[in-house]
Amino acid sequence: MSRQERRRVTDVGTLKAFGHPLRLKLYGTLKIRRTATASQLAEEVDEAVSLVSYHLRKLAEHGLIEEAPEAQRGDGRERWWTPAQETLTFASNDFEDTPEGAAALTATTRTLNEQHANLLRAWIEHRPAWSPEWRAAADGSDFLARYTADELKALTQELHAVVRSHEQRAKAAEEAGDTEGRENVLLYMNAFPFRSL
């Protein structure tokens, strides 16, 4: 199977498979590592290898992960896994027409937000251990403006394009051998309407 650049999940079964808390954690860890075995992932998420293997198979059944290409594998004694796409997305309008879809969307979104909040808490806790350059480069901002739904959609599309452009530049530089000083960076954005705090 050739790795897709972008995949939009549109079926409830795949969203439910992806939305399981341990599977989200495994998928996220695998995305960071790029390739890993069940044993390696089990060690990182502190779970039994048999349980991790089961959940990896479930992710693979829905085409969310796949066996890594030969060049990325170790000694061949274990299965090596990799995400099946660079970017995985899902949109609320694909799931809100049925109670099952709406519930799966809510559960998945809630779990993703909890995991992102945990990562943010870990950054805040461990920030002093990072270099001054990384502390200065990190950001925590919020903005408030009055938009229409169309204006907000245009803004988020523009921001996504900017982020993708920077991702592609960083990836090209890394592939060209510029690996010095690179770290995993999570850029997490929320944009939503509200009426009162």
Rank of each mutant, 00 (worst) to 15 (best):
M1C: 02
R3H: 11
E5S: 11
E5N: 05
R6A: 05
R8D: 09
V9G: 01
T10K: 10
T10Y: 04
T10S: 14
G13D: 15
T14M: 04
T14G: 04
K16W: 03
A17W: 01
F18I: 00
L24E: 02
R33H: 12
R34W: 08
R34F: 03
R34P: 01
A36I: 05
T37G: 07
S39D: 10
E44I: 08
V45P: 07
D46F: 06
E47T: 02
V52R: 08
R57N: 11
K58N: 09
L59D: 07
A60T: 00
G63M: 07
G63V: 04
E66A: 14
E67V: 05
A71L: 10
G76Y: 07
R77D: 12
E78L: 12
Q85F: 12
Q85P: 00
E86V: 05
F90K: 01
A91H: 14
N93E: 15
N93P: 03
N93G: 04
F95K: 03
D97M: 06
P99L: 09
P99H: 08
A102D: 14
A104F: 05
A107F: 09
T108N: 04
T109K: 05
T109N: 09
T111Q: 15
L112T: 02
E114K: 07
N118C: 07
L119E: 13
L120F: 11
R121F: 06
E125I: 02
E125P: 00
H126S: 10
P128Q: 07
P128N: 03
W130A: 15
S131R: 08
P132S: 07
E133Q: 13
D139G: 03
D142E: 12
F143H: 07
A145P: 00
A149Y: 07
D150E: 15
A154E: 14
L155A: 08
E158A: 10
L159G: 04
L159R: 13
L159F: 13
H160K: 10
A161F: 04
A161T: 14
V162S: 09
R164H: 09
R169I: 04
R169E: 15
R169Y: 03
R169L: 06
A170L: 15
A170P: 00
K171L: 11
E174R: 11
T179H: 05
R182D: 05
N184E: 13
L187G: 01
Y188C: 04
Y188E: 13
M189T: 13
N190C: 10
A191L: 12
F192N: 01
F192Q: 06
P193A: 09
L197P: 00
L197T: 01
L197C: 01
